[in-house]
Amino acid sequence: MYAPQEDTRLLARAVRDEPRTPGAVVLDVCTGTGALALTAAAHGAAHVTAVDLSRRAVLAARWNARLRGLPVRAVRGSLLSAVPGRTFDLILSNPPYVPTPGPLPSGGAERAWRAGEDGRAVLDELCEGAPAALRPGGVLLVVHSALCGTERTVEMLRESGLSTRVVDREIVPYGPVMRRHARWLEERGLVEPGVQKEELVVIRAERA
């Protein structure tokens, strides 16, 4: 778990751009500190569930919700398997997406960002599972780096029958995690030598 960065801010803006729906039921997957779950609750959602594999993240989300008096329930688990059989009006996710060498960590802080050599270890599972958890008219909002393959995310969600598009983009300086892996990204040919910025994208997918 680490402090919210530009990707969280970008996705929070997309959440606030969504129409307010009385009684909306929201799921925030990979919640971290709970910042996005709290944004959804403050935006008028009636019931918000925040999910994370990290015990520390779940405790932080619970504490932050309590401090703000917002209706957020935080539970520990892996993506959609933490809420089996439930459906939602809005699913949010800022998942781990940083392309990194070596095996995925089984614990520790790096689990919050390491996502395999293509950055899609969590993204692909989310894209496969989220459509079935959306109610009719439900929306998925997900943010990630364009290095992970924006079109791949869009295509996966469209193949599941969702109306999908990129609703926001922003080029931002590398944060501490990206700077740490900059040389490896260059060696893999994922970025040009000397590049210290990445494009973040917010993808919106809606069930008919």
Rank of each mutant, 00 (worst) to 15 (best):
A130P: 09
V139A: 06
F88R: 00
W113E: 13
D168E: 12
L80C: 04
V195C: 08
D118C: 05
R158T: 12
R169I: 06
A42G: 11
P95E: 01
R152A: 13
V58F: 07
T8G: 04
D118L: 03
R62G: 09
E18Q: 04
R180D: 13
W63S: 14
T164D: 06
V58D: 01
L140S: 05
E186A: 06
P103F: 04
L11D: 01
V58S: 06
R183A: 10
S54Q: 05
A205H: 01
L200E: 12
L67F: 05
V75A: 10
V195N: 09
W184H: 05
T31W: 00
E170Y: 04
G194Q: 07
A109N: 09
R55G: 15
S106C: 03
S93E: 07
A40E: 01
V48I: 14
D28C: 06
E192Y: 09
G161Q: 07
E192W: 09
E198H: 08
P84T: 01
R135Y: 02
H181Q: 13
I171G: 07
H144S: 13
E110H: 03
A82L: 07
G107H: 10
T164C: 04
P95S: 02
G34T: 14
R76A: 15
A65T: 05
L92C: 06
A12C: 11
T33V: 01
R204A: 10
S54H: 04
D118P: 09
V202P: 11
G138T: 12
V51H: 00
H144I: 03
Y174K: 05
R76Y: 10
D7N: 09
D124H: 12
F88H: 01
G194A: 11
G137A: 07
L190P: 03
D28Y: 00
R204C: 09
V195G: 01
V172T: 15
A45G: 04
P176D: 14
A61V: 12
T33L: 03
S145N: 07
R158P: 13
V29R: 03
A41S: 00
H181I: 15
R111Q: 15
T49C: 06
G116E: 06
A109Y: 05
Y97V: 04
A130H: 04
R16W: 03
T100G: 12
R114Y: 00
P95W: 00
A208R: 15
W184L: 10
V143G: 11
A182K: 08
P4Y: 02
T153Y: 03
